[in-house]
Amino acid sequence: MKKQLLFINIVLLTLFSSCKNKEEVAPVEEVKANTFDVVVDLKIEKDDELILFYKDPSIAYFDDKKTVYNGVKGKSESQLITFSIPEGVLPNDIRFDVSSNKDQAPITINSITLSFEGRVFKIEQRDILKYFTPNEFIKFDEATGVATFIKNGENFDPYFLTKPLIYPEIEKVRGAKM
């Protein structure tokens, strides 16, 4: 009988101590993908869908397969919009479509930041035209960062293309050896 009681006590003690140990283990955080991100600080007053096109060494031109869409709720104050390029893809060029809404009010772009693995390149408002070229659907005021949209009949596709000056900066953010 003493052996049975001793056995039961050992089993109970083991159960209680293992339960206690489980409570002390910190929860494991979900590991997030390490993505190349483009973060745009802007003020956009009407709901819209913004698009980031990207190229990598496998393609020579922008196409619909290499895009990141971001639905945006319009606000009267600035907001950060993050485009995360899929994990494992390192772009060598980007195109930023700033509106899909034909009724969009002018937007203000405060900055554009590229980041990957802790490496960051931030383009301030005053330097946007140094690194990007607006297409024919955008009138961009460099002093204020305001992009006004130009309608051409039914055509409406306002976007910014990169200038060659940005390519070395993209490479640095990617971590490429120069």
Rank of each mutant, 00 (worst) to 15 (best):
T144S: 15
I150G: 02
R126T: 02
P134N: 13
I94V: 15
Q125H: 01
A105R: 03
R126Y: 06
T108W: 11
S100T: 15
R95D: 10
F160G: 03
A105L: 11
F137K: 09
K139Y: 12
D157A: 15
I128G: 09
A147S: 15
N152R: 14
I94M: 07
F160R: 06
D127H: 13
P91L: 05
E136A: 00
I112G: 11
A147Q: 13
L114R: 01
P91K: 06
K151M: 07
I128M: 10
K122D: 12
T113L: 12
E136I: 05
K130H: 12
V89S: 03
P134M: 10
G145A: 10
L114F: 12
Y131S: 00
V89G: 01
F156S: 08
G118R: 07
I123H: 13
I138C: 08
N101H: 05
F96N: 00
P91I: 01
N110F: 05
D103Q: 07
I123Y: 13
E154I: 08
N101V: 14
T133E: 12
K139D: 14
E142L: 08
I128T: 02
F149M: 06
I150W: 01
T113K: 10
K151D: 03
G145Q: 06
P106K: 05
T133P: 00
F156Q: 05
P106N: 03
F149H: 06
N135V: 04
R95E: 13
D127F: 14
Q104P: 01
T108F: 14
V146F: 08
K122T: 14
F149A: 04
V120N: 07
N101D: 09
S100Y: 04
A143P: 06
V89N: 10
P158M: 05
I94F: 07
I138L: 06
E124C: 02
R119C: 03
D157F: 15
D93I: 02
F156A: 04
L90I: 09
A105W: 00
V98T: 13
F156G: 04
P134W: 10
T113G: 02
R126A: 12
S111Y: 01
F137N: 12
F160M: 04
A105E: 11
V120Q: 00
T148Y: 01
P134T: 04
V120R: 11
N101F: 10
E124P: 02
D93Y: 08
T144P: 04
G145S: 08
V98P: 02
L90R: 06
K122W: 02
